[in-house]
């Protein structure tokens, strides 16, 4: 089973994404900020990161910049934000995101992009 790491400080959002992903056969792990995300991402392998931007301790950009500098298998990363500003998108891509999604995303939309990023077409 593929493993997804959800990094978000909002517990309901983590639960929401967890429900959608688990229903479709993914294993989900959670972290409450970028620092904890970094610890978990370094501890074991994931097939996808779903990362919020604004978080305490270490934000989403910081998480991606640091994890992309590590010598590990690099999974794709989806950045999720309330901002649709072009500038934020630019920073996200520069930090190492593969996709920038404006929230709140519909379940079908989220799932489509998750599958797309992991190369799953029929899970």
């Amino acid at each position: 089973m593929k493993r997804v790491l959800i990094i978000d400080d909002a517990s309901t959002i983590r639960l929401y994404k967890r429900c959608i992903l688990e229903k479709h056969g993914y294993l989900v792990e959670e972290a409450v900020n970028g620092m904890e995300g970094l610890e978990k991402a370094l501890e074991s392998h994931f097939d996808l990161y779903i990362v919020d931007i604004n978080m305490p301790k270490l934000d989403g950009y910081g998480f991606l910049q640091r994890i992309r500098a590590e010598d590990i298998d690099q999974p794709p990363a989806m950045m999720v934000s309330t901002e649709s500003a072009a500038q934020d998108k630019e920073i996200a891509y520069q930090s190492g995101a593969n996709l920038y999604l404006v929230k709140p995303a519909k379940p079908a939309e989220l799932l489509t992009f998750v599958r797309l990023l992991m190369g799953d077409h029929h899970s």
Binding site: T12, I13, Y16, P104
Partner: peptide, 11 residues
């Protein structure tokens, strides 16, 4: 009338 809002309200 949004999926996430509905989810969070139900929860």
């Amino acid at each position: 009338n949004d999926a996430y809002v509905g989810f969070a309200c139900d929860l």
